[in-house]
Design a protein around this nucleic acid. Structure first.
Length: 583
RNA sequence: GCGCUCUUAGCUCAGCAGGAUAGAGCAACAGCCUUCUAAGCUGUGGGUCGGGCGUUCGAAUCGCCCAGAGCGCGCCA
């Protein structure tokens, strides 16, 4: 038997459509828009009627008549213009949930043909601390990585470090200006390097000559100047170490720590390929590939700048080549700011022109910017970008306000240990708040980041879901102490039934999230499931149930809810603490 | 100028392979802790789905036009 309720019904429907000689493409149900009328609805008769120029109600009635014979449906009706409303029997729901509870994947399916996917979702830069702009790619990327892995794909994440562009020349130039040479570079730590970059950035904005100098140094670095290269290696290493720490706190994992510089050799090959294939040309001293013959006018891809340096477009093309040739990628997914969409269109088109991606699917998942309440990209009060660490500290401070003091905590060997416990909890909750705040939004739309909202963790938030899990954990501890075991599910009231039906949606939700690469589908479901549980929790006591069988059944529902919520949070990269402490 | 995206409740957003009464959260208001963690639950109010025309039995959803907003457009990444 199929573990998904919706799929089970679809199969029954398809069988019925076949029997009636109807197009089975329309044999699909969805959770009903009218829960007062049914559990599921099928709009297939309406679509069929349009296609076949027949009366929709007549077709719907035919289908309903056949389905009537199936005892798994408790109620079937044809309503309105031709909706088929279906309610399922409690025993069907119960058997689906029991099967879920016994399955170590909670009834979730895997993809039929696993792909090798390379995920490009980092994009941090040398000398720059991670700021809120890096939050989305890290958080969304991590969720996609976990989801794709869960459905059975082989996914490898690459941070794609920004380590070979003009900022490198800017920093080196600034160090030379201040120190006279690069001899002291290897002594600098991340703060110092970051300061050099900030100063360099400011100066290059004002001073055209220094900007050109930076560009020249970059080109020399790329072309093998040993002095520059040695200094650069240090800058890169220190930056990687710093950024790794930031990603660790966020729980973002990268399998590969490659960067633009690692594509240097391949970039030369790509440039050569383009020249040999005759698709590049020299224009204004730069080597370019024109894309203008395509349906939409696009600027050309610049392979080699007029000063001999290579741009990030050729680097990205070369990276594609490496990922296809060396890593055997079937699919490459870029989780990058949507403002880069033209760039990716150019790069993808150029890669296709070069014949690099005959069997590889390239996809840019562009996300919207994190904005302030003015609708513009988020800035701090003094106008700078807010760095990630400050944001996390802010969120932690708010969480800490609702936490008890370490000295008031019982059951710990020492106050220091209690403090450590609280600190971990605070971090898990604070990070959950930040990540969920991001993941609850559609990827493509930007969102307004309300600092004030950090004062609260109510409503559609990560902590709300964590709280639901913590409550279930608490019930389960109590039930165990009282000797209550989870048993078969028997439905005795509305709240139990709603929760059961909600739980049965899991597989569909996960598969849809995978197909659409849209983690907010999971966030939304996790939230409504937690909400449905809370309603159930208030209405149906487990410890004080009317009968032992009822208590067992409710405990099963609660424990399954916990497992599903934990899985969902895990797929989003959010931790689920065992308890939620309160003052 | 060209291109892309967007406009849904006071605010922030879902919904958009057309379908039955457009949904959440926040904010507002009214209730619920001697019973499984009140970071919770229940209820109320609040919407000409930017405007217009069209396709359709049926449009927030599809097409066209208009208005407004944002973003991007060869040597930054």
């Amino acid at each position: 038997m199929d573990l998904s309720l919706e799929q089970t019904i679809n199969n029954k429907l398809a069988h019925c459509f076949e029997q009636l000689g109807l197009d089975t493409r329309f044999a699909v149900v969805k959770p009903s828009d009218r829960p007062d009328l049914s559990d599921f609805q099928c709009n297939g008769a309406l679509a069929l009627a349009k296609q076949e120029h027949k009366n929709p109600r007549e077709i719907a009635s035919q289908i309903a008549a056949v389905l009537e014979q199936d005892a798994d449906f408790s109620k079937i009706s044809v309503d309105g213009p031709g909706f088929i409303n279906l309610s399922v029997s409690d025993s069907l729901i119960s058997s689906v949930l029991c099967a879920m509870a016994q399955d170590n994947r909670l009834g979730c399916s895997r993809v039929a043909n696993p792909h090798k996917i390379i995920l490009d979702s980092g994009g941090p830069n040398v000398a720059k601390a991670l700021h809120v702009g890096h939050l989305r790619s890290a958080v969304i990327g991590e969720a996609i990585r976990r989801i794709e892995k869960f459905v059975g794909n082989d996914i490898i994440s690459d941070v794609h470090f920004g380590d070979y562009g003009t900022p490198m020349g800017m920093i080196l130039g600034e160090i030379i200006r201040q120190d006279g040479d690069l001899s002291r570079t290897s002594t600098y730590n991340i703060e110092q390097i970051s300061d050099f970059y900030k100063r360099a950035n400011a100066r290059c904005k004002e001073n055209e000559a220094e900007k050109e100098e930076a560009s020249r140094i970059t080109a020399e670095l790329q072309n093998g100047n040993p002095e520059y290269y040695k200094a650069w290696q240090h800058l890169r290493q220190v930056s990687v170490d710093a950024v790794k720490k930031n990603y660790d706190v966020l729980g973002a994992h990268f399998d590969l720590w490659l960067g633009e510089s690692d594509a240097h050799q391949a970039s030369q090959e790509v440039i050569k390929m383009a020249q040999e294939q005759g698709i590049s040309e020299v224009d204004d001293g730069a080597t370019i590939i024109r894309l203008e013959e395509s349906n939409k006018p696009k600027p050309p891809v610049i392979l080699v700048k007029s000063n001999g340096g290579i741009g990030y477009q050729v680097t990205d093309i070369a990276t594609i080549k490496m990922r296809v040739d060396d890593l055997k990628a079937d699919e490459i997914i870029y989780v990058v700011d949507k403002r880069q969409s033209l760039h990716f269109e150019q790069v993808f088109e150029a890669a296709a022109k070069l014949g690099l991606v005959k069997h590889t699917k390239l996809q840019h998942i562009g996300f919207g910017t994190v904005n302030g309440s003015d609708g513009k990209p988020f800035k701090t009060r003094d106008g700078g970008v807010m760095n990630l660490e400050d944001l996390i500290t802010l969120s932690k401070d708010k969480v800490r306000e609702s936490m008890p003091e370490a000295k008031d905590l019982e059951g710990f060997a020492s106050e220091a240990e209690a403090q450590k416990y609280i600190d971990t909890l605070v971090e898990d909750i604070a990070i959950a708040a930040i990540k969920f705040q991001d993941l609850k939004n559609n990827i493509a739309s930007g969102y307004v980041f309300e600092l004030d909202d950090f004062a609260k963790f109510e409503g559609k938030t990560g902590p709300y879901i964590q709280y639901a899990i913590a409550r279930i954990n608490s019930i389960m501890r109590k039930a165990q102490a009282a000797g209550i075991q989870a048993g078969d599910i028997i439905i005795t009231n509305r709240e139990e039934r709603d929760l059961a039906l909600k739980l049965a949606q899991l597989n569909n939700v996960v598969m849809r999230t995978h197909e659409e690469k849209e983690p907010s589908i999971i966030s939304d479901y996790a939230y409504t499931l937690a909400q449905t549980f809370s309603t159930f929790y208030n209405a149906s006591s487990i410890m004080n149930a009317a009968t032992p069988a009822e208590a067992s059944s409710r405990l099963r529902l609660a424990s399954l809810t916990r497992d599903v919520l934990k899985l969902l949070l895990d797929l989003l990269g959010i931790k689920a603490p065992e308890v939620m402490l309160k003052k």
